[in-house]
Design a protein around this nucleic acid. Structure first.
Lengths: 220, 220
DNA sequence: GTCTATAGACGGATAGAC
DNA sequence: GTCTATCCGTCTATAGAC
């Protein structure tokens, strides 16, 4: 309902991930809610996960969640806005750079870094696109992928690029993010036959592949 | 609950799309339900779309839907199983071919054809991954993407391929399907600034890009 | 800061008339 | 084949005690 949200909790989620083992410190309830909610929303789906389940997993009641967050959507916003901010910052940075292959490479590299540091959030966004598209009264819930993708494409290709260049640039971002998701262990229980590359290797492979997509000459 | 589903309606959904203009023929209620449900599930999300909405859009009542389909999930199954069958057929075909670059190219080409002919279904699957992951009692609702992706990768790369090849093959499929989705008009209302390539051009661009990802030599 | 209790709405699904 | 009416479950969110 409200347009502005003036930071309504004790502390905000840090750089993408929080470094706390499942030990026993207190005062971190808000963060624990975010972690559990993100995990369940990504694994079982936003709509299919009730706040009762989140609360139970935390050993509290539903009502406790409403002390820390004003709604279910608000929990989502709390861990997605950081991710979107990073992409927005990247777009702003990219627009300030001199156009060319070097900037394109740098943007892809930083984009991949954002994805890999916020993998859980990205997984959630990917798998719940339909739930996040629009709120019940026609207003946008969260700013969408599309405008950001277009902005990133334009940084890579420059303005008024031919369709082929634009599609390939888009493909680079799709391939990069999807590859990071699929070739990273998701739930520990899944028995994937093929062995996964470690994260550094994966990152190198993905960056190379994205460069191949954006860097080459027009067709013969 | 039941494992087998012995075809429980008048006619089954034809090859991906049905050729009927919005005229006034009858006896097609089952197909109209599928079309409307698919459209709403893809646009607003599976969980967020109630059967009441589907029925209202069709000018019938909820109960009428239950004459044609035994549950909400069953509607989804009716238009997704055809899509998955096509992919499974492609996998079977690919395994019968002699391994090599030519087969890889053919598989990618046919995969892209499947995506582009069933774009609405694919859009639905993509945007509702979380809803389709598992049913409430731990059983798989629909066979998943992952095993099929692995099978396709192995056809492209051969068995025991190094991570780099596997990631690039996967990226080819991701990039191909996502590009088809994004560079095809979705809802007619959206005002996309950049002009879209026509479908034949898009298909050529996407196939070329997928070939680039799978076809080249190992790194220097 | 967390609890109990409940309001209030809406969902999927079914029974049975026509 | 479609309708009316309804059952029963679950959900988000809130009120108010401690």
């Amino acid at each position: 309902m409200d347009a502005v949200l003036p930071d309504q909790g004790p502390e905000e989620l840090g750089p993408a991930r929080v470094d706390c083992a499942p030990g026993g410190r207190r005062g971190d309830t808000r963060v624990r809610i975010q972690q559990v909610a993100l995990e369940l929303f990504a694994e079982h789906g936003y709509e299919r996960t009730s706040l009762r389940e989140v609360a139970e997993r935390l050993g509290v009641t539903k009502a406790a969640l409403y002390y820390h967050f004003k709604s279910k959507e608000d929990i989502v916003r709390s861990f997605t806005e950081d991710h979107f901010s990073r992409v927005d910052d990247l777009i702003a940075w990219g627009r300030d750079q001199p156009p060319g292959a070097h900037t394109a490479h740098e943007v892809l590299d930083r984009y991949i870094a954002i994805i890999m540091e916020g993998l859980e959030v990205f997984r959630f966004l990917e798998r719940n696109q339909a739930s996040l598209r629009e709120s019940e009264h026609g207003k946008h819930r969260f700013e969408q992928f599309r405008p950001r993708l277009n902005a990133l494409i334009e940084i890579i290709t420059g303005p008024d690029a031919p369709p082929r260049s634009r599609v390939r640039a888009a493909a680079a971002f799709f391939a990069a993010s999807a590859s990071c998701m699929v070739f990273t262990r998701d739930a520990p229980d899944e028995a994937d036959q093929p062995p996964l590359p470690d994260r550094d290797e994966l990152r190198k492979i993905v960056l190379e592949l994205a460069d191949d997509l954006t860097g080459d000459a027009p067709p013969a």
